[in-house]
Amino acid sequence: MPSPVQSHAEERRKHLAAMQRAVPVTRMVDYGVPLGDALHTHGLVATDDSAGWDEICERVAARHHGLAEAAEKAGRSPTAALGWRAASALLQCAQLAFNQDVPRKIALYEQAHAALARHAHLSGDLAEVRLPTPYGGLHGWTVRPDGTAATAAVIVMGGLSGWGSVYLDMGRALAARGLLAILAEGPGQGLTRLRGGMHLDDRTLPLFGAFLDHAESLGVRRCGVWGNSFGGLFAAQLAATDRRVQAVCINGAPMTPAVPSFRTAREQMEALFGVDEEASLRHRLQSLGMSPRRHRIDANLLVIQGGCDALVPLGEQASFFTLVPTRPKAVLTWPNGEHTIYNYAQERNARAADWFAEQLNPQAA
């Protein structure tokens, strides 16, 4: 019979292996981790099972934290900005080790947020968003086009575990094409949940629309939404209920979600909704699902899909087309694309941002 120490070590090894599958090198790079650090992190996981995933990511982040502080003191702002971005991205990967809102997860997310705030101070194109609502504050970031007042915006949404700043490269791809990007941390996500305690339910789901209100307050007249992973479902829900949405991109989402069989996704869903029993989770998912009998989207639609997506099979997202009977629809497919196309992130960002620019025409007067 294994000793408690042996059992603990075995559990740690299993968790590390699970984290390597859930957060591959491609996902880390997509989130903003430099390639060398992503490879180094996975190498440490493979050779040292004495530390947890969060500890390894935090250790690598600490090196960038130190380099960024030293560069900032020396007046090397561009180098410091790179360091703060890398540290933030690594800490975002670290918090993924925890599905539920334990103090360690919250602390890591706050550290990632603080590091990105230092990056924002130096980069000049990034600003925090804090929006009051009757149920608490919404958080996020804006990415502004360089030297121009944007007349069109895209709200970028995450899903169950990746939110806000992990989509900074998406935001900058949009900004490079004259679009204002808002990286939303909606109900049940990011600081909105971890700091403010707001979960997703029938009352709070409409609050995603507050990010559209914020865009309009900044002078925007045309809006799109870009939902990634489970966030694609939130984007579709918003587009179906708010006529201000003129273009919607769904990247890696199910139209009719079900209670997953594996623990990680189930725990992440429970944390999103603030429930702890399967019956409650099933009820929330049923109310979130969409069908052409109950929903209609009056916006142009882009679906992004990958042939190696382990969570959403190729072709499944075509069901969203039934919600858009009269508007143009398009598909971008990567035959060997991973979930949300982690492994072709730059190309995905460029092509999706081109599509939004064509639909929303940010240069129009």
Rank of each mutant, 00 (worst) to 15 (best):
A9N: 14
H15C: 13
M19A: 10
G32T: 02
V33A: 13
S50K: 01
D54T: 07
R59I: 07
G66C: 04
A68K: 03
S77G: 14
G83R: 03
G83K: 09
R85E: 06
A86V: 02
C93M: 14
L96V: 14
K105V: 12
K105A: 03
I106W: 11
Y109R: 11
Y109T: 11
E110F: 10
E110N: 10
A114I: 06
A114M: 09
A127L: 07
V129M: 02
P132K: 05
H139Q: 14
R144M: 12
M157T: 07
S161H: 15
G164Q: 08
G164K: 07
S165H: 14
G171I: 10
A173Y: 03
E185F: 02
D202P: 01
D202W: 07
R203H: 10
G209Y: 00
A210L: 12
D213P: 07
E216C: 14
G231F: 11
G232Q: 00
F234Q: 14
T241A: 05
D242L: 00
N251D: 08
A253M: 09
P254S: 11
P257H: 05
A258I: 12
R263V: 13
R266A: 07
A271I: 06
V275K: 06
D276R: 08
A279K: 10
S280C: 00
R284N: 10
Q286H: 02
S287L: 15
G289A: 06
G289T: 05
R294C: 13
L301M: 11
G306Y: 00
D309S: 01
P313S: 07
S319L: 15
F321P: 08
F321G: 06
L323F: 11
R327D: 11
P335R: 09
N343G: 08
R348D: 11
R351H: 06
A353N: 05
